[in-house]
Write a protein that binds this DNA or RNA. Structure first.
Length: 593
DNA sequence: GCCGTTTTCGGCCCGACTGTTTTCAGTCG
């Protein structure tokens, strides 16, 4: 069994940590080269552990040395250099480097002067007030390290916060800060804006002429449980003992440059600055300016800066330093999908579902308010215990939908259902009853631990069922709590094209399913079609469409491959549903051919 | 360690904050 790209990346991260100790710096060109290799692997669609040295070297950012280390890891499960460095630096020293404020230099000094190589030893040295005796360290450093140990874990991978939780905290902090001090503009940046699945720190950017007041208010906000640092223009706090929030205050005329800078990713920024230098300009968080004259060329908006660098604005979700700048340069980046592109929502629950909270009426009002041309009501089918609807309840709902069609002639209201894919790929009800629905979303709600072969087979079997139009939240994952099923994506994509089944891009921040890496692979397959749906269980959920759209952008999905970007009549025609004008007359949509 | 319309050596993005330094090193993003 070959290691996954994720485990190759984990191995290189370990290599980086040991190399930082060996080089005595976190900024050596070697470690930066390794970091670049990680970015390159993360952007690769194939399994690097199956590639040869020469194939690996084809990848931009991977050279001979790293290619050999990857091959070595693929065949041995370890890298010789790491094993050698482990004899010099005990693995517990890596734990020390995870403590905020402790870098390779300090960790090396602890080992050299005090023989400290693990957290317990460090705590002991702190107790004995020995740390202050080290060169470059004093009493304040000692106190800072002691505080950091208490906060240990905030930066480690295990405690990255799922985006759903981080987004909520960010919204709360931004609302409270806006309410307590006069500011010109406030936005979030960083991995949150790039729609990463898990968030390390929340980055918030404010435009104001009075930075000192803003930072002062910020460190005093409710929920702040620790202040990690604060200066004239930036501050870092911990919110709810849980997540670090970094604030940066700039002047409005520099906002674009700052937003670009703090959105990252680091790799994207570095590439942009290199491109900038090639044009005899320099880019920092304040502006893009001329090297010879120092004159500011662009600073107020991101678009102006990209434009000055000869690029169209790049949507934040794809700023991963993974080829997006080269693609933009070549005009090969897809036009980003926008919320305005989406004409219908095809996965909506009402309070008839056990987990639904709003009435059909409320859901349709919400859809109208959003200007949607069509919706599909997709309550759970009967096999989902507790939450599913019996046949009788479904028929009752169909009558309700008929009434709504008469009252809302402008909107196409599809009588749909969210079907449950069982272990073998069968779905609820019988073929005759399924005929009564206009559209079927089939989803996995059970048997998450079958092997890859069985999962692939059940998904494909569901796709082959004529009642199934869409596969809902295809992996069933919940970010931070459930990994989702494993299936052969290539086989599923092939079946999706053959059967004409669309794949759902689920807008829930807990799901974001299909994930961006899967979407990046799916868009390479001609003929694969997507729908972006909210899977709303409450009328307020329809506003989550923005996250699904954002995810589609992150996956380089073209608007033309999104089925529910079609205007109503074209969409209904694709589904084989006729007679949209007859809606006012209360005629059922399901074509009876 | 990587890379190359100024190629196989000599470069490699940029700045804030902290604590210790009395002009700067370390860490972080």
């Amino acid at each position: 069994m070959r290691p996954t790209n994720a485990s190759v990346i984990a191995a290189i991260r370990q290599l980086i940590a040991y190399t930082q100790l060996e080089d005595g710096t976190s900024q050596s060109f070697r470690t930066r080269a390794y970091e670049k290799a990680i970015d390159a692997i993360a952007a690769t669609h194939s399994n690097v552990a199956e590639m040869s040295v020469s194939e690996l070297r084809e990848i931009d950012g991977i050279g001979d040395a790293t290619a050999r280390k990857i091959v070595e890891f693929a065949s041995n499960g370890s890298i010789g250099k790491v094993e050698r460095l482990k004899t010099k630096f005990p693995p517990t020293m890596l734990e020390l480097m995870k403590i905020p404020g402790l870098g390779p230099k300090t960790v090396l000094r602890l080992q050299e002067h005090l023989g400290v190589t693990d957290v317990a030893g460090l705590e002991d040295a702190l107790d004995k007030q020995l740390v202050r005796t080290l060169p470059g360290l004093g009493v304040k450093s000692e106190e800072k390290i002691a505080r950091s140990i208490q906060l240990l874990g905030i930066h480690s991978d295990e405690t990255r916060t799922p985006i759903h939780d981080a987004m909520g905290i960010a919204a709360r902090v931004m609302a409270e800060l806006s309410a307590s001090v006069d500011i010109d503009r406030i936005e979030y940046a960083g991995s949150l804006r790039r729609l990463s699945e898990t968030i390390g720190d929340i980055d918030i950017l404010v435009a104001s002429d009075d930075a000192a007041s803003v930072t002062e208010r910020f460190i005093g906000l409710p929920g702040v449980t620790a202040t990690l640092g604060s200066g004239d223009t930036k501050a870092s706090v911990v919110i709810d003992d849980r997540i670090q929030v970094d604030l940066r205050v700039v002047r409005e005329e520099n906002f674009g440059a700052a937003w670009l800078y703090f959105t990252g990713s680091k790799g994207h920024n570095i590439e942009l600055r290199q491109r900038s230098l090639e044009r005899d300009t320099t880019l920092n968080e304040y502006s893009l300016s001329s090297v010879p004259t120092g004159e500011v060329i662009a600073a107020r908006t991101e678009s102006e800066i990209y434009s000055a660098l000869g690029l169209a604005w790049i949507t934040p979700e794809v700023r991963e330093g993974a080829g997006e700048i080269a693609a933009a340069d070549a005009g090969a980046l897809p036009r980003p999908v926008s919320v305005e592109d989406i004409k219908g929502d095809l996965h909506l629950h009402t309070d008839r579902s056990g987990d639904g909270r709003s009435t059909l009426e409320a859901m349709l009002d919400a859809a109208s308010a959003r200007g949607l041309e069509y919706v599909a009501i997709t309550d759970h089918a009967e096999n989902l215990t507790m939450n599913g609807l019996s046949r009788a309840e479904m028929l009752e709902q169909h009558a309700e939908i008929e009434e709504q069609r008469v009252r809302r002639p402008e909107m196409a209201i599809l009588a749909g259902v969210e079907l449950n894919i069982d272990a073998e790929g069968s779905i609820d009800y019988d073929p005759e009853f399924l005929e009564l629905f206009d559209i079927g979303v089939a989803s996995v709600h059970s048997y998450f631990d079958l092997d890859t072969t069985a999962q692939t087979a059940r998904i494909i079997a569901a796709m082959e069922n004529p009642a199934v139009t869409i596969i809902g939240h295809p992996t069933g994952r919940k970010i931070g709590s459930r990994p989702g099923i494993m299936f052969d994506l290539d086989a599923v994509l092939e079946a999706a094209v053959e059967t004409g089944t669309a794949l759902e891009i689920n807008s829930s921040l807990q799901r974001l399913d299909l994930s961006a890496p899967f979407l990046r692979r799916a868009v390479e397959v001609p003929g694969v079609r997507f729908v972006i749906s909210t899977d709303s269980h409450h009328a307020s959920g329809l506003s989550n469409m923005k996250w699904g759209v954002s995810l589609a952008r992150k996956g380089w999905v073209r608007p033309s491959s999104v089925l529910n970007s079609l205007p109503k009549n074209e969409f209904l025609a694709v589904l084989g549903i006729h007679g949209t004008d007859s809606a006012a007359e209360g005629v059922q949509y399901r074509d009876d051919h």
